[in-house]
Design a protein around this nucleic acid. Structure first.
Length: 190
DNA sequence: CGTGTTTGACCAGCGC
DNA sequence: GCGCTGGTCAAACACG
């Protein structure tokens, strides 16, 4: 199966097995409302099919983020506010693993995406002054991982990469019956 | 005491 | 083979 098609379903039909881009919020609220509710902006995200290239999420981000933010701030109610932000990576490998990365303007590195994560590592990476944090989903039998790091080009942005697919519902969505991937800045995790 | 974080050590992959 | 780098492990630690 194509994992990219899964990603496309996720972006167009809210069937993302992973949390994320709170597109629903985009389509139903104004920028001001969003800014009031959330102190971050989703600025970019990338769906991967197969092999993931680390550089993709930071490559040329300055230019793209400008475009994205202009879109976001100027035409939020347009029909395709995110269309230009979806990028398909070449399928360079045969791995079936689902990977999904996006870039968020946020003061906080940790997004409360409804899932429960356990931090298992922190590493300084080459060519970046900021450490990369490694998380695993704590749900039993779920091996989804995510990496979180600040954009080396613009520390105001946080790059989050999800790897794998959740085999369960978001606990938060069960409790609150809300979109499971609605992101919220979290102060409960450090 | 249970749960989650920190952090140094370890391992695997890759380029030379 | 060796060194570099990214990713993971696990013991120690912190906290409620």
């Amino acid at each position: 199966m194509s994992t990219f098609s899964t990603a496309m379903n996720a972006t167009s039909h809210y069937q993302n097995p992973n949390p994320n881009p709170n597109q629903a919020a985009y389509s139903s609220t104004t920028t001001d409302q969003l800014n009031e509710l959330l102190d971050f902006e989703l600025s970019d995200y990338v769906a991967f099919d197969g092999e993931f290239e680390e550089e993709i999420s930071t490559r040329d981000t300055a230019k793209r983020s400008e475009n994205v933010e202009n879109n976001f701030n100027g035409s939020l109610s347009s029909s395709t506010p995110l269309a230009s932000n979806i990028r398909k990576e070449k399928n360079l490998g045969t791995k079936d693993e689902f990977r999904f990365a996006f870039r968020t303007k946020s003061k906080l590195e940790i997004m409360d995406d409804g899932f429960k994560w356990r931090k298992y590592g922190k590493k300084m990476v080459k060519n970046s002054p900021n450490p990369r944090n490694y998380f695993k989903c704590t749900s039993e039998g779920c091996s989804v991982k995510k990496r979180v790091e600040r954009d080396r080009d613009d520390p105001n942005y946080v790059i989050t990469t999800y790897e794998g697919m959740h085999n369960h519902q978001s606990p938060d969505s069960i409790i609150h019956n809300q979109m499971p991937w609605t992101l919220q800045p979290s102060s409960s995790l450090q």
